[in-house]
Nucleic acid binder design. Structure first.
Lengths: 185, 185
DNA sequence: ACAAACCGCCTCATATATGAGACAGTTACT
DNA sequence: AGTAACTGTCTCATATATGAGGCGGTTTGT
């Protein structure tokens, strides 16, 4: 592939992620226009709209995979792994702000996603076993709350660096935002 | 309005909320079909698609308003008000599962929403003042986290009643899901 | 039972998004 | 400099969603 083509491809993917996050039904024309590229250029690279969507999701999940690998979810101490994971995902959420909703679209993407979800699930179980999380809560609860918090940190407090935002997420997750706990006062 | 027309209207609104939550670009035809009603019936009641969307959002925010009023955010003790508010919103999220994203659509709806947001903001400030929440966090953080948690509680743990789900949200919000705090063990 | 309201179904017009073909002009590598 | 790759533009076909008019039949309220 020629270098300018590669640049355009990257640009289309990133612009697509951004626009689709704001409006999941953004048209190819709108994406192309926002990327300062002709609509036809997009259609030359991706045969169909679905293909572009799949490519954007793929880009995102590759970034997620890198973050997961870097967090060493199975080997590192749980507290460390948790922080690394959260920080990585916050960065990914900012770089690839794709909506999580219609993930079931492409089968390859779904499979990729399921593999990563399984890894995180295993980590959460380990975190409970090793006493980081309370075991008396519905298992699905932490699983639901953690991604929400990471999304809030990515979008809700954009001034914070990923590292500081991760501090906030982990602290909120583990101890909450209430006043009365040992480390307060 | 005739009674059967009222029933159909209600049905369309509820079905619309459900479908639009799953897929914000759901067509009028899809909504009508899911509501076992002809497409033309919808268009008779709502001149345009925007109008239907606005009506659905209006229905949701009226329910939110009821929940806020019932919580007595300014008079009741903060802990009580918080719990009542959370429980009410969880119920609303289940009854009117509208996406929060494109709220900026209709001006009347946006205005309505802003008024409610302001009320909740004031309550959160009071909660900090009265020592329920830690004051050393970005003000926007609790504001971002609370709605996410209420959404997670509505969708992520559907088996729990609104009251039990509210317990979970409040406890998670105030003390987190970590192991080491005074009430554990 | 009767009049009005309402619904379902047909049809039509319009707008917008998708996808592809062809070709001239420009840009990148060797 | 020359070749291959790439892009922009124009055009066309197709599909789908929106919105509205009209009409016969059904349901509701009195």
């Amino acid at each position: 592939m020629r270098s300018d083509a590669a640049r355009n491809l990257e640009l289309v993917l990133r612009t697509g992620a951004r626009l689709l996050a704001e409006d999941p039904s953004a048209s190819i024309a709108a994406i192309a226009s926002a990327a300062s590229v002709d609509r036809r250029t997009v259609y030359r690279r991706f045969t169909s709209r679905e293909e572009l969507l799949a490519a954007v999701h793929r880009a995102r999940y590759e970034a997620v995979e890198q973050a997961i690998d870097a967090a060493r979810l199975q080997e590192a101490p749980v507290a460390v792994a948790l922080h690394l994971y959260v920080e990585g995902i916050i960065a990914v959420n900012r770089a690839w702000p794709v909506v999580m909703r219609d993930v079931r679209a492409d089968p390859t993407v779904a499979e990729h996603r399921n593999r990563l979800v399984k890894e995180v699930d295993a980590f959460l179980v380990r975190a409970v076993d090793e006493g980081l999380f309370r075991p008396d809560l519905p298992l699905g609860w932490i699983n639901a709350v953690l991604p929400s918090l990471m999304l809030d940190a990515a979008e809700g407090v954009p001034d914070l660096t990923p590292a500081r935002a991760a501090d906030l997420v982990v602290e909120t997750l583990l101890r909450g935002v209430g006043m009365s706990h040992p480390n307060a006062a």
